[in-house]
Design a protein around this nucleic acid. Structure first.
Lengths: 340, 340
DNA sequence: CTGAAAGCGCTTACAG
DNA sequence: CTGAAAGCGCTTACAG
C-alpha cells in the first residue's frame, strides 16, 4: 500500500537510480528529468523509507537516549536540549526509560543497538552497570555519551557537573552569610548525594560545626513524595533542634519540602531560617519565596552531550572527552543575607 | 565491524536461514543445532538488526510521538505512560518535539513516517493542521491517535478530557461552597481555555454574577513565565477589586501564580481567598498549601492512546474510536469550604 | 529439520 | 546524464 521508489520510477518513466538521484541531489540529473520526477513524487506523496536508506548506506541518523525517568523536573529539560541540538543535524531521538532499574537500562541499550542507532546518550547511568564490563564492551562498537555518569570507562565521553564545587559554593555562601549550624538533607544512596555530603562534612568540620546528627536522609521517592518525605523529616528535626539557621538540600524538591515544613512550624524563610537547593529546576522559580539554588546547567548538559556524541560519530568513535561544567550559584529569595 | 547474521552462520557452520530460525523460534530446529547457534550468538555478542528485519517483514515496531514541548509538567507524565504501555508490547518510541509550531509539527510527522513508524500519537495537535487536509491524507496510510485534539478528522482515534465538564465541576464546587464572585484566569488563544471560559460565562450568568472584567488573560508563556505573568495580573486585579472570594485558574501554573500573588498581598489561601487549578500536575502536590484542582487523567490519557493505537495497528487502521474521559475533582487545601 | 534463493526499499559504483 | 546490477541484513516460502 505504501508508495515506494519503484512506483515513482514507473510513473515517471525513469529508473529507480534516477529517482534516487533527484531525491538525494548528489549526482547530476537533467533538469527536465528532475522536474518530471519531482512532480510524480508530489503527486504520489512519496516519502522515502529511511530504514532502507540506512541499511544501504550503512549508517544511521537515529540517536538513542536512555533516562531513568521522564517524570521528573530535571530530565525533560535535558532531553529538550538534546533534541533541539540533534534535530538541527538531521537526527531523530529514540527514547527509552529505564525506571531506575539496572537491568532495564541494559535492555534499553540493547534494544537501541538493535534499532541501529548511530550512538546513545545515557542520563544518570546506573553505577553497577558502569562498574561491570557492560559499558566497556558496548562502547567499543557504538559511540556512547554519559550525562552525570562518573565515567571511568575508557572510550566513553561524558558531561557532568562538578557537584563537589557546586556544594562548596552553596555552603560557602551560607557560611559567608554567617550561618554556622547547617542542616544537610539528602536522599538514599546516590553518588551525587555522597559527593555533596563529603564536601559538607569537610567544610563543617573545618569550622568546628560538624555534628553527624545534622545530616538527615529522607529515603527514596520521586516528585511530590520527595517533598512529603522531606516535610516529615524536617519537621521532626526542627521540633527537637532549633539551633539550625540554614538548610542545605541536595535537590530542589527537598528544598521545597524544607520550606514547606518551616511554614507549617511558623518559621519564616529566609528571616528565621535559610534554605538553599540544588539543580535550579523550573520549580525553584515557581515557589514562593523563589528558591536560591545551584544551577545544574541542564540545557548545557544536553547541548554538550549532543556535541560530544556527534563528534564521536564523525570520528568513528575514536576519541573520547570528558567535560565538567562548573555549577554556579543562583541567588533568589530563600537565604537570609545576614545570617544569625 | 558490526556482527551480522552472516558472521554467526559462518562460525556456527549453518545457513543464515537456520540462524534466523533460532533467533525467532518460529520453526523447528534440531536441539543440537540450536545450542550451537546460541553459543555462537553469545560469543559474538550478536544483536540482530531490527531495521533489516522490519524491512523484510514489512512491519514496524516503532511508534512516533509528537508533542508541543517536553519542558512542561503535563507532557512528560503522558509520555511516560505511553512509553510504559508500548514497551510492554515490544514497541519503541521515537520522539519529536514541535515547539508549538504548526509547520514543525508537519515536519515531525513526515520524518516519523519516513522512519517507518507503525503509528503515531500526537499530543495537542495544532488546530490549523487539523483543519487543513494534512491529517486527513496522512491518516489514510498510517494509524494516528490524538491526545486532546478535538479530532473531527475521520479515521483518527482520539482520547481527550471533557474539559467542559471539568470546568463545570470546579465551578460548581466553588459555588456550592458559597463563592459567588469568582475570578477566571486564562492564557492566550487555546481551544481548551475557550471551552472553560464558555462554561464559566454560562454558569456565572445563571447565578447573575458574570462580569466580563472578572475574566483575565495573562498572555502567553511557559513554566515559570506563566506563574510570573499570573502574579502580575492577579496582583493588579486584586488591588482594584476585593469582592472576589475565589479564583478559577485554567491550569495549575496559573493557580500557583494566583496563590503567590495572594501571599504577597497578605491574603491567606484559603481563608481569605480560595483557588482552584486545573490539570492535577505534580506541582499541585508540591506547593504549600496543596492545590485543589481538576484531574486531567494524564496517565489514563497516555494508556488509552497507546491502546487505541495498538488497536488501529492490529486492525489495519480500519476502525477509529473517540474516548472522552471525565475530569474529576481533587480536593486538597486551597478552597475554603465555607465560602464567604 | 535444513539450505538456497527471492525479496523488502533503497544507494552507488560501474558502464555506457 | 542515465540504467542495470549488486548489496545492505534480515525473513520466509519452497524444495528437499
Amino acid at each position: 500500500m505504501k508508495i515506494t521508489i519503484q512506483d515513482v520510477a514507473k510513473k515517471a518513466e525513469v529508473s529507480v537510480a534516477t529517482v534516487s538521484r533527484v531525491l538525494n541531489g548528489n549526482y547530476p540529473v537533467k533538469a527536465e528529468t528532475k522536474e518530471k520526477v519531482q512532480k510524480v513524487i508530489k503527486e504520489l506523496n512519496f516519502i522515502p523509507n529511511i530504514q532502507a536508506r540506512e541499511l544501504t548506506r550503512q549508517k544511521s541518523t537515529a540517536i538513542g537516549v536512555v533516562l531513568p525517568s521522564i517524570n521528573n523536573m530535571f530530565f525533560p529539560e535535558v532531553v529538550t536540549s538534546i533534541e533541539t541540538a540533534l534535530k538541527a543535524k538531521g537526527y531523530s531521538l529514540i527514547l527509552c526509560c529505564s525506571n531506575n532499574d539496572r537491568e532495564e537500562e541494559v535492555r534499553c541499550i540493547n534494544d537501541l543497538l538493535a534499532r541501529n542507532v548511530a550512538g546513545v546518550i545515557v542520563l544518570d547511568p546506573n553505577t553497577s552497570n558502569i562498574n561491570s564490563d557492560f559499558y566497556k564492551s558496548i562502547a567499543k562498537t557504538v559511540p556512547i555519551v554519559f550525562i552525570n555518569g562518573h565515567a571511568s570507562v575508557e572510550n566513553i565521553s561524558s558531561v557532568s557537573n562538578d557537584e563537589s564545587i557546586g556544594a562548596e559554593i552553596a555552603l560557602k555562601y551560607l557560611i559567608n552569610n554567617n550561618h554556622k549550624n547547617i542542616l544537610f538533607i539528602r536522599g538514599e544512596n546516590s553518588a551525587s548525594y555522597d559527593i555533596k555530603e563529603k564536601k559538607y562534612i569537610s567544610m563543617l568540620t573545618n569550622s568546628n560545626h560538624y555534628h553527624p546528627s545534622n545530616v538527615i536522609n529522607i529515603g527514596k521517592g520521586n516528585g511530590s513524595e520527595t517533598v512529603d518525605n522531606t516535610i516529615v523529616s524536617v519537621t521532626n528535626f526542627l521540633t527537637k533542634n532549633r539551633k539550625i539557621t540554614a538548610i542545605f538540600a541536595c535537590n530542589d524538591l527537598m528544598a521545597v519540602g524544607a520550606i514547606n515544613a518551616c511554614k507549617r512550624l511558623g518559621l519564616n524563610v529566609p528571616e528565621d531560617i535559610s534554605v538553599i537547593g540544588f539543580d535550579n529546576t523550573e520549580l525553584s522559580k515557581i515557589v514562593e519565596p523563589k528558591l536560591t539554588t545551584i544551577d545544574q546547567n541542564m540545557s548545557l548538559l544536553g547541548e554538550n552531550a549532543a556535541e560530544l556524541l556527534l563528534e564521536k560519530i564523525t570520528y568513528n568513535n575514536e576519541f573520547s572527552k570528558k567535560i565538567i561544567l562548573n555549577n554556579k550559584l543562583v541567588i533568589r529569595e530563600t537565604v537570609n543575607q545576614q545570617g544569625d
